[in-house]
Amino acid sequence: MSPNLTLTSLPVGVLVILGVLALAELALDVFALVDLVRRPRERVALGNKWVWVAIIVLINLIGAILYLTIGRRPATPVEQVPSAPGTVSNRSVADALYGDPADEGGSGKGGTGEPGTGGSR
């Protein structure tokens, strides 16, 4: 085996595998860079996005993996504020649209197709 291999001397299956791996690496780099651009600076480890750009671009696959695993800080949890007394709940809206499921007669606005029941004719 000669030390100077060319791409034309490799079997087609190996070329396909190398192509798929190259596309996967490129997709991961693009994903990491897009995520970095969209993420606020406060949610990036080290607080400097340019350091992460250099790591992702110069270290290729490992740089993108490093950013995605340790470079992103999770969002701070937002406290859920209890709904105000005058607000409408999802359940009451659903009941108004489709009828109360506790109704035994099915007097809601669901459609049976019969005239006078609100269904389609």
Results as ranks from 00 to 15, higher is better:
residue 48 N to P: 02
residue 18 L to F: 06
residue 53 V to D: 01
residue 30 V to R: 15
residue 97 L to S: 10
residue 103 D to K: 13
residue 71 G to E: 01
residue 84 A to V: 11
residue 108 G to H: 07
residue 101 P to E: 02
residue 97 L to Y: 04
residue 85 P to Y: 09
residue 89 S to Y: 13
residue 66 L to W: 15
residue 42 E to K: 12
residue 61 L to D: 02
residue 105 G to Q: 11
residue 32 A to E: 01
residue 17 I to F: 02
residue 75 A to F: 05
residue 34 V to G: 00
residue 85 P to V: 09
residue 81 V to I: 14
residue 77 P to Q: 11
residue 89 S to P: 15
residue 37 V to G: 05
residue 92 S to H: 10
residue 71 G to I: 07
residue 40 P to S: 09
residue 51 V to R: 08
residue 70 I to L: 13
residue 46 L to A: 09
residue 79 E to I: 06
residue 24 A to L: 12
residue 73 R to A: 03
residue 11 P to W: 02
residue 52 W to S: 08
residue 94 A to W: 00
residue 90 N to A: 05
residue 105 G to A: 12
residue 106 G to W: 10
residue 84 A to W: 01
residue 27 A to L: 10
residue 76 T to N: 14
residue 60 N to G: 05
residue 42 E to Y: 04
residue 41 R to F: 08
residue 20 V to L: 09
residue 36 L to F: 02
residue 91 R to T: 12
residue 33 L to F: 07
residue 30 V to W: 04
residue 94 A to H: 05
residue 97 L to E: 02
residue 82 P to Q: 03
residue 37 V to M: 04
residue 21 L to V: 01
residue 71 G to P: 06
residue 26 L to H: 08
residue 47 G to N: 03
residue 78 V to R: 11
residue 29 D to H: 07
residue 79 E to M: 13
residue 102 A to P: 00
residue 32 A to K: 03
residue 10 L to V: 07
residue 56 I to D: 00
residue 66 L to P: 01
residue 28 L to Q: 02
residue 86 G to N: 10
residue 82 P to D: 03
residue 89 S to N: 06
residue 80 Q to L: 10
residue 60 N to I: 06
residue 96 A to V: 01
residue 97 L to F: 04
residue 40 P to C: 05
residue 40 P to A: 03
residue 37 V to Y: 06
residue 62 I to P: 01
residue 89 S to I: 11
residue 40 P to V: 04
residue 34 V to L: 01
residue 54 A to Q: 14
residue 100 D to N: 14
residue 22 A to P: 00
residue 42 E to Q: 13
residue 58 L to E: 08
residue 41 R to P: 12
residue 84 A to D: 08
residue 16 V to S: 06
residue 106 G to Y: 12
residue 13 G to V: 10
residue 69 T to I: 08
residue 62 I to R: 06
residue 89 S to W: 15
residue 13 G to R: 08
residue 83 S to E: 03
residue 70 I to E: 04
residue 55 I to S: 04
residue 65 I to Q: 07
residue 36 L to K: 02
residue 86 G to P: 00
residue 58 L to W: 04
residue 80 Q to H: 09
residue 59 I to F: 14
residue 61 L to H: 11
residue 96 A to Y: 15
residue 38 R to D: 02
residue 45 A to R: 15
residue 64 A to E: 00
residue 99 G to Y: 03
residue 29 D to C: 13
residue 46 L to G: 03
residue 14 V to P: 00
residue 14 V to N: 05
residue 41 R to Y: 07
residue 37 V to S: 07
residue 43 R to V: 01
residue 74 P to F: 03
residue 24 A to M: 12
residue 31 F to K: 00
residue 21 L to S: 05
residue 28 L to F: 00
residue 86 G to M: 02
residue 98 Y to V: 10
residue 21 L to E: 15
residue 77 P to G: 13
residue 49 K to E: 11
residue 57 V to D: 02
residue 41 R to T: 15
residue 92 S to L: 14
residue 96 A to L: 14
residue 10 L to W: 14
residue 30 V to N: 09
residue 58 L to S: 13
residue 76 T to C: 10
residue 27 A to V: 13
residue 100 D to H: 13
residue 33 L to G: 00
residue 28 L to I: 01
residue 93 V to R: 15
residue 47 G to C: 08
